[in-house]
Amino acid sequence: MSDVAADPVSSRTFVALQVAPAPAQGAATDRAPRKDGTRCSSCSMRPMCMPQGLTPEELQRIEALICTSRTIRQGETIFRANNPFQSIYAVRAGSFKTVVMHRDGREQVTGFHLAGDSLGLDGVCSGHHSCDAVALEDSKVCIIPFNLLETMCREVKAVQQHVHRMMGSEIVRESSQMMLLGTMSAEQRVATFLLNLSERLRKRGYSPAEFHLRMTREEIGSYLGIKLETVSRMLSRFQRDGLLDAHGKDIRILDHDGLTRV
């Protein structure tokens, strides 16, 4: 099965943001920085977020720019569609969804982002964000002012290569999503989604067989282009077939190979 949501990779550099327009209702506001003692060198997401092969001096340069990560409460947004693009964001803890709003007010989920993923690259092209980024749970992000990241890219080759991989991952993620929506049955979409999530959790050191879904079935259906009822029906079918055990949002994969063959 194809990988429907390849992990975008993130890096972490942080300085105070320039003053931005007041956020829309529900958006998280920029809070005054406060030191919390967490550094890239001791962060559990460093293998996912940071470029590999940095010298101690290069790592120190990056850490010198870091202020504390910012807490985003469940339901708050980091940015909204049409907000000016200033920064990209590394998810340090928690999870997010990205959504676009249709003219009739319907919400379309375009991605789910876990710790170690990046957010905000949608704004690089036009200078404005094209979607909302909403916290699925209380989460933390590290904020990376893009102009400073560009400067560091010119000075540190490993960082430049890392940013290229981040952008490449976004291209792969979007093309995979198009293939999922255009060529797979509903059953295959749900199976592929679970397998992809399992693999992403494995890479972060969590159990690939037992996990708790942070998103609702309605949000999964929106992402996969199917109805909520269809998601529930597919999960029930997989359970009857002995492929997994599902209790609410708690998922236990019983037959990984069987799920792959769906």
Rank of each mutant, 00 (worst) to 15 (best):
M1H: 04
D7Q: 12
S11I: 15
V15I: 11
A20R: 12
A20E: 14
A20C: 04
G26T: 10
A27K: 11
R34H: 13
C40A: 04
S42N: 08
P47Q: 08
C49H: 01
T55V: 07
E57D: 12
I66R: 15
T71D: 13
T71S: 12
R73F: 09
Q74N: 08
Q86Y: 10
S87R: 02
A90P: 01
R92W: 00
A93T: 15
F96L: 01
D104S: 11
D104T: 09
G105H: 14
Q108W: 00
H113S: 03
G116P: 05
D122Q: 07
S126A: 15
G127F: 14
E137C: 12
P145M: 06
R154D: 05
E155M: 11
A158S: 10
E170I: 00
R173F: 04
M178W: 06
T192K: 02
F193D: 00
L195I: 10
S198E: 07
E199V: 12
R200V: 08
R202S: 15
K203N: 11
G205C: 10
Y206F: 14
A209V: 10
E218G: 05
I220W: 00
L224V: 01
T230W: 04
L235W: 04
S236T: 09
Q239S: 15
K249V: 06
R261N: 12
